[in-house]
Design a protein around this nucleic acid. Structure first.
Lengths: 347, 347
DNA sequence: CCTTAGCACTCCGTCCTTGGGAGTGCTAGC
DNA sequence: GCTAGCACTCCCAAGGACGGAGTGCTAAGG
């Protein structure tokens, strides 16, 4: 990766090619470019420049004597150096605001899902939202329900109102009355503890003398520990209206579409990509082969963290073909993250 | 719909055409048919019969001088009269059993999802499962959690271990302690009441003198009522691995596929189709235009109820192109329903 | 040295034609 | 009522011609 800086005119032409190709999805030729973008030079000159840009790896021809299209590297340069100032048409702002505000008063899950959907609709791509990470979630309440002797349903509620539940084997538990006591004990013990610290807290409590002698308390801790165990994968991913992607011509091909949809099913993949945006500042753009997942050849992801600046909670973003209007999508994702952050603040 | 009965030979030919077309997805011609199915008559005779069958509406030609394919009516006759005895290859039985047994010990949701998935995989179509209807679900436990003053999270658990939750506005509620009392009260009141009867029970209790004078109890009932309200749509639908449908050549066309996927998103549509199978006895087969939803032109649904015979709980089925191996799929759906019923019994 | 006009060339996509294959319907004979 | 034979229809794949869009190169001009 040599960090090239293009001369002004060359950059302008690269920018024009990207803009044009994003718009039309057809290879762009010199003549057309000059006309549409009022470049004050002749097509022949543009051709020379294009040949240079191709040599540098920013453009390529799908076949000889066709127009040029941007390579991943071309898009990269465009994103890094040529983006117009971030401005979002007020119509889109409004739609985003409305979509997120409408779900605002509801539970967290609804809010996140609504956000992913409205992102999809406004961007004409597919919106993604990762639920707040386990680290920022705080224990609020636990409830134990005896389904039948030896089998207990553990319900866990976080401060933001997210409900987790899981069935746990507990052969020694026989009555709901026992569970009631355990519930009270656990609730008292864990009130306000961050979920990540719950296990630790429980282990510490195990040392407590009182616990050593009380079978019930020991069991309660055991249950509590099992309840939070294995929940590390906490990052639920919401995929909004995946069918939107069919609006993009590159996915008229069934095989391509299928690959992408398979990625959608494997939430782990999406999580991996979006997670990088949680830590990093600003909006992250992964273009085509830049992103680590082979199945997502030809796709780009624009993502950013949401939450307070000093304390990112999760990430959201948009996935679509590499041929995407980066300026617009970046502004969109940025704004959506701000709105979602605000909504969570209120929640 | 005139209820025609075909003469033996005609019926056999219709059956052969259906079998062959299901297998190859190509219009089938007379010559080929004779050879492959060892009909002891000449192609010319077969042609005559086919012409008759076409006139009766069982077959049609996509264009002159092409082979024949079954019409919806043709499939209907096949399903009603020509199905080979229901027998399921032991390999498929095993795969079904395994898929369902594996999820058996888990919570209900997991079980239902696993069932829809294994149906998809074994049938090479898309499996559908409707969660047990609200009528057969029984109240087990309720829990109220104060998220912040005036806003309460209501968690509802049914006997089978299904967890519902919802955020409810309750401006007067200010402390968790109040909620604790309400919780106990509601749990005592509703233990073992079928969900459909909960609201009724609550209304009856409202008349109770004790309640008239106790603000807390009134509020508790209010909350309980809101918690079950609007939950009529209880039938959650699980769609198993929709991408499987791409294995069928008819869905290589993006537009067709898109329509179907849109139907998958609108769970209401699927619910409507499957719900008919809950009441009806045996396996229901809706072929192409027979099913009430226009978007599902060209698709068939094979569905049946699961649960105890005298008390159906929900429905499951398979959706795919009209060109599907009905005999096999019917046997599959039947067996899956039995397995799921048994699994629920144990749960 | 950079720019540009001109020109020959390349490649794609479309349209048309052609020929073979699969299948039918009809007729006449058994 | 069944069947062999035959003429006919239609699709589909392959081949060829052609126009369009675009390029690269060369040579001339600033």
């Amino acid at each position: 990766m040599t960090e090239t800086t293009l001369r002004d005119r060359d950059a302008r032409i690269l920018g024009a090619v990207v803009d044009e190709f994003v718009q039309t999805a057809e290879p762009v030729g010199s003549r057309n470019l000059v006309k549409k973008y009022r470049l004050e030079i002749s097509p022949a000159t543009v051709r020379n420049v294009m040949a240079d840009l191709e040599e540098m790896g920013f453009l390529y021809q799908p076949h000889t004597s066709a127009g040029r299209q941007p390579t991943d590297q071309g898009y990269r340069y465009y994103v890094d150096h040529l983006l117009p100032g971030p401005s979002l048409p007020s119509g889109q702002r409004r739609r985003l605001r409305q979509g997120i505000r409408d779900a605002d008063l509801d539970a967290l899950e609804t809010l996140l899902e609504a956000t992913s959907r409205v992102l999809s609709r406004v961007a004409h791509q597919v919106g993604l939202v990762v639920a707040p990470r386990i680290e920022v979630r705080v224990f609020r309440h636990v409830d134990l329900v005896l389904l039948r002797p030896g089998r207990v349903l553990v319900i866990l509620v976080t401060r933001s109102g997210v409900v987790h539940h899981r069935v746990v084997e507990a052969p020694e538990v026989r009555s709901q009355a026992e569970l009631e006591k355990m519930t009270n004990y656990l609730n008292g013990l864990l009130e306000g503890v961050p979920l990540v610290a719950v296990r630790e807290r429980i282990l510490a409590e195990m040392e407590n003398e009182r616990v050593q002698y009380d079978r019930l308390l020991r069991q309660a801790l055991e249950l509590g520990s099992q309840a939070v165990g294995g929940d590390e994968g906490g990052g639920q991913v919401y995929v909004g209206e995946p069918l939107r992607i069919l609006e993009q011509p590159e996915f008229q091909d069934v095989e391509k579409m299928r690959q992408l949809f398979e990625a959608f099913e494997r939430k782990g993949i999406l999580l991996r990509i979006l997670d990088r945006a949680v830590e990093a500042p600003g909006v992250q753009v992964s273009i085509g082969t830049e992103n680590p997942v082979a199945d997502l050849q030809g796709c780009s992801v624009v993502a950013t963290a949401y939450g307070r600046d000093d304390r990112p909670m999760g990430a959201l973003g948009v996935i679509g073909p590499t041929r995407m209007p980066y300026g617009e999508v970046i502004a969109l994702v940025e704004y959506a993250a701000r709105l979602l952050g605000q909504a969570l603040e209120r929640l």
